[in-house]
Each structure stands twice: as structure tokens, then as C-alpha cells.
């Protein structure tokens, strides 16, 4: 039971922060199917930074960890600018743009990983090894039954995510920027008439989605995968999109959705282990979150209220 919670949370939280990124983008009116690519690109930049810091400058693993997250945030945000540019400036179809951003992220990061490994380190390798992050247990609280599991074997990134999520929530619902952002997704004409710069708000919102996805990608790289490689693109970005859809584009219900995924996954693995099934069966467990997503979407998509101006190209000059 405890390990279900421990593994569940370490999967839930990255998913959640990425979904918040998606909410930022979509509440501002930009459809964002690019989360998958954004998290991969963020993880790649972060992993590269950490790898260089450790191997070229002798930085200790512990500090490199935080450096990795910093660069993942920057990398995700910068790469997200491409999506913003395409959707806002070049008025591309937002769905197509998202798909393309994903394709480009996959090919570019894998290509660069290989090229850099070969050129800089003389190794024909398609991955950047990171190792699994250390984990911490809060003494005392962790002894409480069930609840204590939330404080046992916690990755440091889980703390980063909780803090970032709270900040993101606060900015979205309490600050002027959040008010402006949500206005852009409902009625950009109203926002424009109120003197807001719709394009700029949307641009920053998409960048925020990149930054938060970067955190998510880096977290996956430091936990499930212990490296950066093409394997990182397993569709978690799309899982978080599914989560935010049936969280109705609001932050708290989305957390609930992410938890369902996280716990379904960890419980499934636990089941395979306890039943002593061969490893091939874990392939079947892997589909659990996806199947669950589909089933949940069946119930929640019907009357789902997406932001009203989602996906529309906003053109001031059009009469």
C-alpha cells in the first residue's frame, strides 16, 4: 500500500505540473498538444546541462540536480516560444503546430544527443545518463499509517513541483496577470478592448506551459528513466492533456485526475509484482493509464466546457 502511494505520487506530480502548464496555455486560448515535445526538450536541455556540469566542471551530482531543473525550465520555455510563434505570429493551425512541435522535439533531441555524444565525448550513445535522484523521508510524520507514505521516499523534485504548482495556482486565480490570461481564453476581443495585449499574454502563457513541462520532463528523466533518451517520449504529455480536459481546465480537479493515473499505474505494477508474473505482463500494466483515460473521457467529455476562444486565431484587424 505504501509503495503504491510513494510511486503513485512520484508519477502524479510531474503529470500534474505539466497539466498546469497545459491549463495556462489553453486558458489563454492556445491549444497545446505540444506538451509531450516540450517536456522532452526541457529534459534534454536539463540533462545536457547537468551532464556537462558534472563531467566538464566537476560539479557535484547534488547541485547538478538543481541546475538540471533550472535549465529544463529555461529549455522548455524557450522551445515553447516556437509553438507560440507559430500559433500567434504565424497563425498556424494550433493542433498541427502542436503535433509538429512534438515531431521536431523527438527528432532534434535524439539527433543532438547522438551528435553531441559522438562529437564531444567520442561515444556512440543515444542517451545522457543521469542516475536516479536521491530520495528523502521526513522523520516522524512518515510513521503515520497511510498518510505517512506521502512523506516517505520523496524525490526532491516533488517539493519543487508542489511549490511551483501552488505558485501557478496563485498567479492564475489571484493576480492581475491571471485575470488577464483567463480573459484572453474566453473573449480576446474583450481583453483587447480593455487595453490588454492579447498576443503577449498568450505568448507568455505558452512559455509558462513550456517551463512547467520542462520540470515534468526532468522529473521523469530523474525517476522513471534515470537518463535522457528517446524513450522519454512515451505519451505522458498526452496523459496530462487528458487529465486537464476532465479537470475542466481548472487546477484542483486536474490534480484529482492526475492522481487517478498515478495510482492506477503504481497499483498495477504492484499487482504484477505480487502475483509474480513475468515482466512481459508489465506491458499490459502500461496500458492502464491510457485505458483509464479513455474510459474517463467517455464520461466527462460530453458536457465539457473548454475555454470559449480555445484554438481560434485571434486577429485584431479582422472585422
Amino acid at each position: 500500500m505504501n509503495s503504491i502511494i510513494i510511486d503513485g505520487m512520484s508519477f502524479t506530480l510531474p503529470l500534474f505540473i505539466m497539466a498546469i502548464g497545459g491549463i495556462y496555455s489553453e486558458r489563454s486560448g492556445i491549444t497545446n498538444l505540444a506538451l509531450e515535445g516540450l517536456q522532452g526538450m526541457g529534459a534534454f536541455i536539463g540533462a545536457l546541462a547537468a551532464y556537462i556540469a558534472v563531467n566538464c566542471f566537476g560539479m557535484p551530482q547534488g547541485s547538478a540536480y538543481y541546475l538540471a531543473f533550472l535549465f529544463a525550465i529555461i529549455g522548455g520555455a524557450v522551445y515553447a516560444m516556437l509553438h507560440a510563434l507559430l500559433c500567434i505570429r504565424f497563425k498556424a493551425n494550433q493542433v498541427i503546430s502542436g503535433v509538429v512541435i512534438n515531431l521536431l522535439a523527438t527528432s532534434l533531441t535524439v539527433f543532438l544527443t547522438k551528435s553531441i555524444n559522438k562529437a564531444a565525448f567520442g561515444a556512440a550513445s543515444n542517451k545522457i545518463d543521469l542516475g536516479v535522484s536521491a530520495r528523502y523521508t521526513v522523520p516522524g510524520i512518515s510513521n503515520i499509517p497511510v498518510l505517512g507514505a506521502f512523506f516517505t521516499d520523496v524525490y526532491p523534485f516533488e517539493l519543487i513541483i508542489v511549490a511551483a504548482a501552488f505558485l501557478a495556482w496563485f498567479v492564475m486565480y489571484r493576480t492581475p496577470y491571471g485575470l488577464h490570461l483567463r480573459a484572453c481564453g474566453d473573449n480576446p476581443h474583450a481583453a483587447d478592448a480593455a487595453g490588454l495585449d492579447v498576443a503577449r499574454i498568450r505568448f507568455t502563457a505558452v512559455m509558462v506551459s513550456g517551463a512547467l513541462s520542462g520540470i515534468a520532463g526532468m522529473s521523469f528523466a530523474y525517476s522513471i528513466f534515470a537518463k535522457f533518451s528517446g524513450d522519454l517520449y512515451v505519451g505522458y504529455g498526452f496523459l496530462s492533456i487528458a487529465a486537464l480536459i476532465f479537470g475542466s481546465w481548472t487546477i484542483l480537479p486536474t490534480l484529482g485526475a492526475c492522481m487517478i493515473f498515478g495510482f492506477a499505474r503504481s497499483a498495477g505494477y504492484q499487482l504484477v509484482q505480487m502475483a509474480g508474473l513475468p515482466s512481459a505482463y508489465s506491458d499490459l500494466i502500461m496500458i492502464l493509464p491510457y485505458v483509464l483515460t479513455l474510459i474517463l473521457l467517455m464520461f466527462f467529455s460530453k458536457n465539457n466546457q473548454s475555454p470559449r476562444a480555445l484554438g481560434e486565431v485571434y486577429d485584431k484587424a479582422r472585422r
Binding site: L179, R182, D186, N187, H189, A190, A194, R308
Partner: peptide, 8 residues
């Protein structure tokens, strides 16, 4: 056409 945010 009024420029109002419908859910505000």
C-alpha cells in the same frame, strides 16, 4: 457587440 468575458 459587447466585449465582455462571459465567465467573469
Amino acid at each position: 457587440h459587447f466585449k465582455l468575458v462571459s465567465n467573469y
